[in-house]
Each structure stands twice: as structure tokens, then as C-alpha cells.
């Protein structure tokens, strides 16, 4: 039985890891773009991005998951029922119910990109103006200053909050089951219904502990690597 359960949980955990990894791959760079938007000197962009980030951070991820999963299908249905037609309605009419996993991924990417963007912004804004000015008087360009001087200092500053956020993401992936994305807790829970077994549920916790433990080790390594200088 143990092996059956393990195999099943591994399958569920595969889906969990896939969601986790893909979210990181897309949300890490997207967050940087959003942070530039929220620091933009162009007022409308700045205002729009900050409002968007505020909404995403101020509402539950679970709500965002449900909305992103259901809204496209409803919009498409509504558009197809319209009598009048123009190109917008025609385009909306092509909207269909999206794939569960894709909906979960989109929600996670948007949500986490917004959280990451705030961390990036905090890190970038914490670098003293003096660093840029020193670069300027030494004849470096703005991009040289950013990539050769500022970036590594930002990385060092944001590693601790980033590691917290990323470890939270591992656990947050389990929320995807609200729109019926198969993941590890689901597969653990299914043994209660099918075999009356409770222990597989505890066993799922072990997977999370191992994943979070590994991440903690990785981030500690990075922090140690960057400990040769202080910012």
C-alpha cells in the first residue's frame, strides 16, 4: 500500500512542482517589469501599475483563481448570445473556458509577479543615490551602473524576502485544487474516500517539508555566497 500511495502522491507532487516551477519562470521576470512600471516617472503608467498591484495584493489568491477560471467562459457565452455584432464582440465570442491548469498558472503568475515586483521595488529603491552618482562621475552609463554596480546589491538585499515568498508559493500551489487542478493534497485526500486511509494525508506534508527544506538550504547557500560584502 505504501508504494501505491507514494506513487500516487509523487504524481500529484509532479503537478505541484510543475505549477511551482512555471510560476517562478514567468513571475520572476514579469515582476521586474511590473516593478519598473511602479517606479515609472510617467504618471499614468505609475498610477495604473500601482493600482493593479494593490488590487492583486489586496484580494485573495483563491478569488483570483476562480475569476480567471470562470470569467473567459462566461464572457464568450455572453458574446455569442449578442444580437448586434462588431469586431470586439466577435473577438469576445471566441473566448472559451480555459484549461484548468492554464488558469491556475495564469493566476499564480499574476499574483506572484505583483508580490515580487514590490520586493524588487523595495530592493532597487533601497540603493543609495550615491552609488548612481559615483558611477556617473566615473563616466559610466546608466545601464552600466545598473548591471555592474546596483544589481548585485539589489540581489543581496532581496534574497531574504524572496526566499520567504518562494517558500510560500510551494504551499500556495495547493490552492489550485479549488478549480480542480489535480495536485498532491488532492491525491492524498482521495485515499480517505477510496480506502479510508488517513495517513497519506500526513504523508503529503512530508513532501512539502522536503521541498521547503531544500529551498531553505539553497537560499542559505546564496546568502552565504553574497556575504563577502555588506550593503
Amino acid at each position: 500500500m505504501f508504494w501505491t500511495v507514494t506513487e500516487s502522491l509523487l504524481k500529484g507532487f509532479g503537478s505541484t512542482l510543475e505549477l511551482f516551477a512555471l510560476t517562478l519562470i514567468f513571475a520572476l521576470p514579469l515582476g521586474l517589469i511590473i516593478s519598473f512600471g511602479s517606479m515609472s516617472k510617467i504618471k499614468p503608467i505609475n498610477w495604473f501599475v500601482r493600482t493593479f498591484v494593490w488590487i492583486i495584493r489586496g484580494t485573495p489568491l483563491m478569488l483570483q483563481l476562480i475569476i480567471i477560471f470562470y470569467v473567459p467562459g462566461f464572457v464568450g457565452m455572453w458574446a455569442r448570445e449578442q444580437q448586434t455584432s462588431n469586431f470586439i464582440i466577435e473577438w469576445l465570442a471566441t473566448w472559451k473556458v480555459i484549461d484548468r491548469f492554464a488558469a491556475a498558472l495564469i493566476s499564480f503568475v499574476i499574483n506572484y509577479a505583483c508580490y515580487f515586483s514590490e520586493i524588487y521595488r523595495g530592493g532597487i529603491e533601497s540603493i543609495s543615490k550615491g552609488q548612481y552618482e559615483a558611477c556617473h562621475v566615473l563616466g559610466m552609463s546608466k545601464s552600466q551602473a545598473f548591471f555592474h554596480v546596483v544589481l548585485l546589491q539589489v540581489v543581496k538585499r532581496i534574497i531574504p524576502p524572496m526566499s520567504n515568498e518562494i517558500i510560500t508559493l510551494v504551499k500556495d500551489t495547493s490552492l489550485a485544487r479549488i478549480i480542480s487542478v489535480y495536485e498532491i493534497i488532492w491525491s492524498g485526500e482521495s485515499f480517505i474516500k477510496s480506502d479510508g486511509l488517513l495517513w497519506p494525508l500526513f504523508y503529503t506534508g512530508v513532501f512539502f517539508l522536503i521541498a521547503c527544506g531544500l529551498l531553505t538550504i539553497i537560499f542559505n547557500r546564496i546568502e552565504k555566497k553574497l556575504s563577502y560584502f555588506s550593503v
Binding site: G130, Q131, A134, V137, K156, F229, S230, V231
Partner: peptide
């Protein structure tokens, strides 16, 4: 050239 009050060395 400019020498700053706060040095502004690059820490890394």
C-alpha cells in the same frame, strides 16, 4: 573628478 563625503564605494 569628485570625492564624496560618504565615499560611495561599490561594496561588492
Amino acid at each position: 573628478g569628485l570625492v564624496f563625503q560618504q565615499f560611495n564605494l561599490f561594496p561588492q
